[in-house]
Design a protein around this nucleic acid. Sequence first.
DNA 1: CGCACCGGGTTCTGCCATCTGC
DNA 2: GCAGATGGCAGAACCCGGTGCG
Length: 376
Amino acid sequence: MAAVSGVRALLRRSINQVHLTSTCLPKWICSSVTKGNEPKPTVNSENESLLENLNLMGVDVEMARQRQPGVLRKAFTNEQGLAQFMKSKGASRQVIASIISRYPRAITRSIEHLDQRWELWRNVFQTDAEIVTILSRSPESFFRSSDNGNLKKNIAFLASLGLNTKDLHRLLTTAPRTFSNSLELNRQMVEFLEDVCAELGGKNPEQFPKAVISRNVYILIRSTKRVKTNIEILRASLKLSDSELLAFLQGPGAEILDLSSEYMKKNFGSLQQKLDLLGCQRADLKKLIVSYPVVLFIGPNRLSSKLDCLLKGGITMKQILEKPKVLDYSTENITGRLEELKRVGYDFQKNGISVLDSSRKRFDAKIEKLSASLDD
DNA sequence: CGCACCGGGTTCTGCCATCTGC
DNA sequence: GCAGATGGCAGAACCCGGTGCG
């Protein structure tokens, strides 16, 4: 969410530009007219006409300079070509400016390169508009690599794992960086996962990476070191048998493999502490994590206040452990629902706590029914 | 018809460090 | 020594509805 609003903020820049003048033919082509008596003529000076061009396009030059200063010193760049290309794909002027501001190297790509890369992305996406959306969200994912051959091989490789079109689409939509990884890096992760499966006595290790990746599309943009550490943490703390651990990892557990390892450790520790405090057994902790691993996503403070809020509302820890999905909902949401339920005299001991785990629509309908019967 | 079970959808970039090739 | 290419990291949940069963 924060990231999204950050992007919005970027898009809102306007400054004082006029339209792109139609007379700016190949003004950008060359501008290194430096005198011979300057200390470092072409090395350290920025390309003035490039700067002017970027300004006219609404690019945040200060941001670009901060991110990739070298690009501003280049004699030959292709900002006009890029702009035209992006425009032909339906990108607005603001989006184009934002892309260059955030990833200046984009202007060093040739039209041929861009065409090729776009076509490769179109193997996965149905429309140009989808790609434009991703580019404006994450320019770096598209522009960081100049190796289209590698991209092509990546797509083939990922498809060869058994990931279908829908999986690939989800992968490229939510973790576009995956496709800019070197094929070798992706292959390393896949091989690592196959090894994990084999070590745990899995029958067909080839299907394991697909299972994990389709449940967690962020895996391939994480280091094997991180995933390895996380598996170690889970193995050591949950003390499952090999086959149980394997089932967990390719099932619900896959969701949490991309967590920062420190974060996983920290959250595991604080969860354990909190459950101890509430008088739970170690078996309860294990059961909770195995049945509802995303509990480890919730930070210590948030988790603590969420549990407190449920307990204060008259729900027991035993009920929470039975139906951990109630923890899915925000504390605000839960608080509000508990109040409404209290108002209609809902009895959790008698009726259970599943009401809390339902959509807004269903919950409201339920409340309405309960208050109607209250009026009778 | 109401409920519980269950899976699915959304989401994740922007920065820095380190190599490599010229 | 430069810029380019690539790897890796921190950050941190919430919500909806289909479906099958009693």
